[in-house]
Computed example of a mutant assay.
Amino acid sequence: MVSIGRPMFQVGSNIFELIEFTATKTGVPGASDRKTPILYGVNVAKVREVIRLPTIVPCLTNAPEVLGVFNLRGLPIPAIHLAKALGYDEEPVTPTSQVIVTEFSSRRAGFVVAGTRRIRRVSWDKVLPPSSDAFNTITGMMLIENQDFIFILDFERILLDIEGRSTGQGASGYSANEGMIQPGSSHGGGAAAPAQQGAPAGKSAKPLILVVDDSPTARRAICEMLRGMQLDIIEYTNGESAWKDLVSAEEGSDLSKVQLIVSDVEMPKLDGYSLVKRIRNNEKLKKMPIILHSSLTGDVNRDRAKQAGADAYVGKLNRKEIVEALKAALPPTWTGAA
């Protein structure tokens, strides 16, 4: 059984820990054995505990990967067969199976796996972003010993897809929670997207916000919200690219006019905490207001954001919290949040 404790690494070290486990896929082309275990991981910051398989009470649902609910110290927790959610229908649930109990975006869920292997300490600069949008349940991947890959799963996306199908709404992103931003149509998602055009002559310019998030769904949703609040946007898909361009921005360029940064925390190459630390240690940028937004909940993560130097730490796509943070950080003349 894997033991979960408080992270011991320093804030801004660009280090995180993940729980490693496998899911078994059959019929992998080119594999010598038709049953091929694939290595996966989940950020320890999302995990409350790992438990032995409890008694699961079946419930009515149209999502086949939902096995039912179980009681965890008086709380009903949905039990999700993770292998089945990934499309590996052949992996059985047995008495030796374990449950990874997660908490993020103020929701708890239990993901049933064959077993956990170890906790691995990882540097975000070793994590590569998915090479294609086809890997929509993966937030990153990295090469480990013996030339194996470990894939970091997007548990939020998996849970939201299941909830969307259970309610008949489809995988609608962040529509499951009241007050959460709901994304609309998609737009380009390169390393950086240019800001909107400046205000016409005679009108004050809109505040320019830099949004950094590796998730296309989350980035699209928050950018649509901010544009609806009369804010101009520059988008980046990871902290490393945003940092390099910010420090090298020439006077008069769009990036030199950024008034506030809204950044995700979990990102390949450079995480949000490390991005904040670098900005706070840079003479030119150190006074830049920064809002971190994340699905990681709890006082531990808020404390880590404060240690890094963030001005605010808000729930992922929580409109109320984001508006309050914007009002505190932007000039009083801005009234777009009203």
Rank of each mutant, 00 (worst) to 15 (best):
G68S: 06
D148H: 12
Y236Q: 06
A195V: 15
R304Y: 00
N318T: 04
V57Q: 13
G30L: 06
N282P: 05
T96W: 10
K327F: 02
E178I: 15
L255F: 02
N238D: 12
N301L: 05
K269G: 01
A23T: 10
G27I: 07
K320R: 09
A134L: 15
D214E: 14
A109R: 11
S97C: 10
M180P: 02
I150D: 02
E251H: 07
S256F: 00
T26I: 07
N146A: 10
R302T: 08
G87D: 02
F111Q: 10
A193Y: 09
D303H: 12
A176N: 09
L330V: 03
A329T: 10
A31L: 05
M142Q: 03
L317N: 09
F104Q: 08
L72H: 14
K203T: 14
D271C: 03
P64S: 13
S166Q: 08
A192R: 15
M225E: 14
E224F: 03
D214Y: 04
T333C: 12
G252H: 08
P207R: 04
G168Q: 04
E20N: 08
G252L: 08
K327H: 06
D33F: 05
A242V: 02
Y174S: 06
D232W: 02
S3T: 11
I290L: 08
K287S: 13
H81E: 08
Y40A: 07
A193C: 12
E145V: 11
A114K: 11
D303C: 09
G68Q: 03
T24I: 10
I56Y: 06
N238Y: 00
L317R: 01
T139K: 09
F21A: 04
I56K: 05
S295N: 11
M288P: 08
S274P: 01
L53T: 03
E156C: 14
N177S: 15
T137A: 07
A114M: 09
K306W: 06
D89Y: 14
W334G: 07
A201V: 15
L159C: 15
T61K: 01
D245C: 01
K126F: 03
D245H: 08
S274I: 00
T26C: 05
K327R: 12
L60K: 15
G184K: 06
A338F: 08
R52G: 13
L317Q: 04
D254H: 06
R108S: 14
D303I: 09
Y236F: 15
I291V: 10
K320Q: 11
L270R: 00
P183A: 05
F149H: 11
A310K: 00
G68K: 05
N177V: 15
M180A: 15
R219T: 07
D214A: 07
A221Y: 00
A191S: 14
I150P: 00
S106F: 10
Y40Q: 09
V28W: 04
C59N: 13
E266C: 02
L159V: 15
M225A: 13
E266Y: 01
E224C: 01
A310G: 02
A242L: 01
S294P: 04
S215V: 03
